[in-house]
Nucleic acid binder design. Structure first.
Length: 193
DNA sequence: CGACTTTGACCTGCGC
DNA sequence: GCGCAGGTCAAAGTCG
């Protein structure tokens, strides 16, 4: 076992990731394929959105616009489902102790793994109750980075994959830097005139 | 051979 | 205390 991990050091603001993953650099996932998590048609009971998102309220400041509204919408969605509510509460309370910022989003794709520019190592897979598809657990492979993500496909709409990020990368995105470096060099060159 | 995936076992937290 | 469910570990297997 790994035991308790030391708290992540404060992050320099310039390394904070964008509010959404860097789809701009993933041709297989154009931004148009993103699904806003507010679509009632896509609110699957498979996904405990409230528990997924509630943990982010503690330290979630920079990335909350999309996901906070999603969480509140999901909370409303749940109020008429008291039977499930108790279970959700149990799960939500379990997530309370998590202090890492979280955000989740849906993508429509045949692939479970979306290329967000970072490298991930799968460390677990678990069958989830009320879901046909298992949930996969990934960690960022960067040695100093403690970011995790969970990936789960909806059984209600199998074309939709829900990805939940936990934590913030403390290193630049490799693909982002690859893409930006020549642009920056060009800008530096042009700025001399 | 290193990086990564698979998968069963184990740990933890919670409700009953 | 027990059972359930989610999350993680780590050994073994796979791949390039």
């Amino acid at each position: 076992m790994e035991g308790q991990k030391p708290p992540a050091p404060p992050l320099p603001p310039q390394l904070l990731p964008p509010p959404t993953p860097s789809f701009l650099f993933t041709p297989s996932f154009p931004s148009s394929s993103l699904h806003p998590p507010l679509d009632p048609q896509l609110l699957s009971p498979d996904i405990d959105w409230v528990s997924l998102l509630s943990a982010g309220q503690a330290g979630f400041t920079d990335h909350k616009p999309m996901m906070e509204s999603a969480a509140s919408t999901m909370a409303e969605h749940r109020t008429d489902q008291e039977e499930r509510g108790n279970k959700d509460k149990r799960k939500a309370s379990r997530m309370k102790k998590a202090t890492q910022p979280r955000f989740a989003f849906q993508t429509r794709s045949a692939d479970d793994i979306l290329d967000d520019g970072y490298r991930w190592r799968k460390y677990g897979q678990k069958a989830v109750k009320n879901s046909v598809y298992p949930r996969s657990y990934y960690r960022c492979t960067h040695h100093t980075c403690n970011v995790k993500k969970q990936v789960q496909r909806l059984s209600k709409d199998t074309s939709i994959v829900v990805t939940t990020y936990e934590g913030i990368h403390n290193h630049p995105c490799e693909k982002l830097m690859e893409t930006l470096t020549p642009l920056l060099k060009q800008m530096q060159f042009l700025s001399r005139f």
